[in-house]
């Protein structure tokens, strides 16, 4: 239900996108941008061939032995996603009806779903292919669904609200349903607070100790603050 409002808001943009595709112009609305100064969330995905699902929601063969390690950093305030994608053992040419063959799709594990973001395909000699950069929305995929691009109305805040409902994959001519696929999982940001200072170098007096104790006592395993930039549904 949460997609209804954005879809209405982007009706005009969708019309423009449809026109562009229909006249065969490879217009990319998505803009390659510099890395933002900060991020609101980060995600990783271990993509493997056994997780590939066909459009009929049934398991489909991926490329045996291949893997994809997909790392994403998001600034949802700016609608920027930075990506570091590494494929191992993916062979042959890419193939997809979308404008590239490397995507984030929206679907639960074991289900098929539409692409929301299309990334530049990983490239490289030999067994390893990589792709890195940052894209800024609004996003387009080149795939038309219900009369509009499947990226229309999509916001990165939707990934932050429910990362497990999205997966990364890449499609090749030999494995059109996907060579590898993996659901997104959130990773923590910044350093890990694993010390209270008793043995640390420098002044580690009572004031310091009390502060660290307060930091850790807040919740069961140390959760202390309310995230501000989170749109949880």
């Amino acid at each position: 239900m949460r997609r209804i409002a954005p879809r209405l808001a982007f009706l005009t943009a969708a019309t423009v996108a449809f026109t562009a595709v229909s006249v065969g112009t490879a217009l990319a609305q998505d803009t390659e941008v510099d890395e933002p100064g900060s991020f609101t969330s980060m995600f990783t995905a271990m993509a493997t061939p056994d997780m590939v699902i066909g459009t009929d929601n049934q398991p489909a063969p991926g490329q045996p032995g291949a893997t994809g390690t997909f790392n994403y950093r998001i600034n949802s305030d700016q609608e920027v996603i930075c990506y570091d994608l590494t494929l191992q053992g993916v062979q042959g040419d890419y193939k997809s009806p979308a404008k590239t063959a490397t995507h984030i799709h929206e679907a639960q594990p074991g289900m098929a779903g539409p692409p929301r973001i299309a990334f530049p395909n990983p490239a490289g000699d030999g067994d390893t292919r990589t792709s890195s950069g940052c894209l800024q929305g609004p996003f387009t995929t080149g795939v038309m669904a219900n009369g509009q691009d499947s990226g229309t109305g999509f916001s990165l805040k939707e990934i932050e609200a429910d990362p497990s409902a999205f997966f990364g994959d890449t499609h090749t001519a030999d494995f059109t349903a996907g060579a590898v696929r993996g659901q997104l999982t959130e990773v923590p940001m910044g350093g890990v607070e694993t010390g209270a200072g008793a043995t640390g170098a420098g002044d580690t007096g009572a004031t310091v100790a009390l502060g660290a104790a307060g930091l850790l006592a807040a919740a069961g395993v140390g959760a202390v603050a309310v995230r501000r930039n989170r749109a949880r549904s």
């Binding site: 923590p188 890990v192 006592a217 395993v221 140390g222 959760a223 603050a225 309310v226 989170r230």
Partner: peptide, 10 residues
């Protein structure tokens, strides 16, 4: 954790 950092053992 809610602030985006890693939870640590209490």
């Amino acid at each position: 954790a809610d602030d985006g950092s890693a939870e640590v053992p209490q």
